[in-house]
């Protein structure tokens, strides 16, 4: 099913406030990550791609935090949705921080169905942490 088209006249959210969700997680609530990642992704890509993104997030989170706990961050950037999961005490710095200069993804031209084929999930793993990105239509 294609994403529902954005139309200001239908009253969809046109906020300029960026989306960012941060949580402390362990291996017991992966359904939350699936739900949230999928909910964000369905605004921009087809349902099946959003489903894959949600399950990829949960799978990577389960691997990273297995037997431990960690942090989960999900946010929008121009052209992609980002998810970062880090195990507590993982080497290599801190979790991503909100950047006041970061632009919100929203764009009137950002959700044309002809660009759906560009959607791709990229997974970057490093010790104790993983970053997933889902490219979304953006011009």
């Amino acid at each position: 099913m294609p994403p529902r088209p954005v139309d200001d006249s239908l009253g969809d959210d046109t906020s300029h406030q960026p989306f960012w969700a941060h949580a402390r997680i362990d291996g017991t609530a992966l359904d939350v990550l699936i739900t949230l990642a999928r909910a964000l992704a369905t605004r921009w890509v087809a349902q099946d791609v959003a489903e894959r993104f949600g399950h990829s997030v949960a799978l990577e989170a389960a691997t990273v935090v297995m037997g431990s706990d960690g942090t989960f961050d999900l946010w929008e950037e121009p052209g992609r949705l980002m998810c970062h999961i880090a195990r507590s005490g993982a080497p290599g710095g801190t979790a991503p921080q909100p950047n006041p200069q970061r632009l919100r993804l929203a764009s009137r031209t950002a959700r044309t169905n002809t660009h759906e084929a560009r959607s791709a999930i990229v997974v970057e793993r490093s010790p104790g942490r993983v970053t997933l990105s889902l490219s979304v239509p953006f011009e």
Binding site: F19, W20, A21, H22, A23, I25, T28, A29, V32, L36
Partner: peptide, 11 residues
């Protein structure tokens, strides 16, 4: 709150 997980919104 979502199923025991608390999401915060820094923005």
């Amino acid at each position: 709150w979502m199923n025991g997980v608390v999401l915060t919104n820094p923005y």
